[in-house]
Write a protein that binds this DNA or RNA. Structure first.
Length: 397
DNA sequence: TCTGGGGTCCTTAATCTA
DNA sequence: TCTGTAGATTAAGGACCC
């Protein structure tokens, strides 16, 4: 059976949501990101703003220079997350196998849907129609025999595009593309390719095997060589879990004072811990990220004897990493903290700040009551089976 | 010149362990 | 018991993505 992978990518997502919600922004350049006059970059720019040369990751001061008349908005991440959830629900009406990449992007396994919905173009149109009708937002869709082709397809016809690449069209589709379009090829690698005089995928494909390896190492060489031939994974992973939670902040002006740094770290640790508790995750590795004056960035991490989602533990470890003595003594531009390396705890520690003693007793009593009922109904064997299944981790359970 | 925030994955080196 | 070594784990940094 022919494998079909879809890639759906919302157009200028943050800016489009703001424009949809505020009709007076229609026909105006909209830039979502930092406020002009502050430190920060562009998170999203609508297509009108892009005609001024504004693009995401551009310093906000530069964007303002190019277009002082644009609408400048701070991101409203909660709102985008709500819209995103709505969109993912719509995607799941097409296929249950949806792999989110970010808030505005997902891969879909469309294999075998031809009999149900129709040929790939019809499936793509249906995705676009359902999202537009329900949310008022446009999406670009690429469909191809694997993830790479699907992704390049959705990029190819942006905005509001639909592109289907059949297996026998893959090589011709890729050939004229700039190598910069390939996955995992950023600024550094582009410099190397430019130095070698390679601009297009066709040129890359024509290189003798081994040549790339000398300049990029074996792993990257194999990856780019395969991509040039259109060879990539067609696997779409449903419900891929996150691997870390982190929170960081850049100061308006660089900071020397330890009390400000510690206070900030405390707030960040509390947010990380709260998010971890909400998602029922405990991490055994705490990471401190710190950026000094001059953009010099360091990370320090430490593995804990037991996983945690307790802000006090996260703060204590992060502060200890900061004071280890192996970091420069310079003013701090950015500070951040994260946890990772999820591990199943035998018994989740109950948060002292969430429940008082009588509440804890009540919860314990009700828990024991429930266990008795379940054990009575299904027998101990079933109860143990349930516990084991749970212990395998939240993804599999 | 100016470079946010939240992530993933890879490479390399040091350290631990069998 | 000592020593050398291979493989696993940990830690740090960097490239890349959205």
């Amino acid at each position: 059976m022919q494998r079909w992978v879809g890639h759906a990518d919302l157009d200028a997502f943050y800016a489009s949501v703001e424009q949809r919600d505020c009709p007076e922004y229609r026909d105006r350049p909209v830039v979502v990101g930092a406020q002009p006059g502050h430190r920060g970059v562009v998170a999203a720019a609508n297509y009108r703003a892009r005609t001024f040369g504004i693009h995401s990751a551009m310093p906000i001061a530069e964007a303002y220079r190019r277009c002082p008349n644009a609408v400048y908005l701070r991101p409203d991440m909660d709102k985008y997350a709500r819209v995103s959830r709505e969109i993912f629900q719509i995607l799941e009406t097409i296929t249950p196998v949806v792999e989110p990449v970010s808030v505005d992007e997902a891969y879909l396994d469309l294999t075998g849907l031809e009999k149900l919905i129709g040929p790939p173009e019809v499936i793509g149109s249906e995705i676009k129609r359902r999202i537009l009708e329900a949310t008022g937002l446009t999406v670009s869709v690429g469909i191809g025999p694997n993830r790479l082709i699907a992704k390049l397809g959705s990029e190819h016809r942006k905005p509001d595009g639909l592109m289907v690449v059949f297996p026998d069209q893959v090589l011709a589709f890729l050939a004229p593309m700039p190598v910069a379009n390939l996955r995992g090829l950023g600024r550094q690698t582009q410099k190397i390719f430019a130095g070698l005089g390679i601009r297009t995928v066709a040129q890359l494909r024509a290189l003798p095997p081994g040549y790339l390896e000398e300049h990029l190492g074996s792993r990257a060489a194999v990856s780019f060589h395969n991509q040039a031939l259109g060879i990539a994974s067609a696997e779409v992973v449903y419900g891929r879990g996150r691997k870390s939670i982190s929170k960081e902040t850049t100061f308006e002006a660089d900071v020397r004072e330890h009390d400000i740094l510690q206070d900030t770290l405390h707030k960040l640790a509390a947010e990380v811990a709260a998010r971890a508790r909400r998602e029922q995750l405990s991490g055994a590795v705490v990471t401190l990220k710190i950026r000094f004056t001059g953009f010099e960035t360091h990370t320090r991490q430490r593995k804990l004897p037991a996983p945690t989602h307790d802000e006090r533990v996260i703060l204590r470890e992060a502060w200890a990493l900061f004071n280890q003595g192996n970091l420069p003594r310079k003013p701090v531009r950015l500070i951040g903290v994260g946890i990772s390396d999820w591990q199943q705890t035998e018994t989740e520690p109950m948060q002292a700040d969430l429940f008082d003693q009588p509440q804890k007793r009540e919860i314990d009593d009700r828990l024991l009551e429930t266990i008795d009922k379940v054990a009575g109904r299904f027998g101990k064997g079933m109860l143990q089976l349930g516990c084991k299944k749970e212990a395998r981790g939240r993804d599999s359970s």
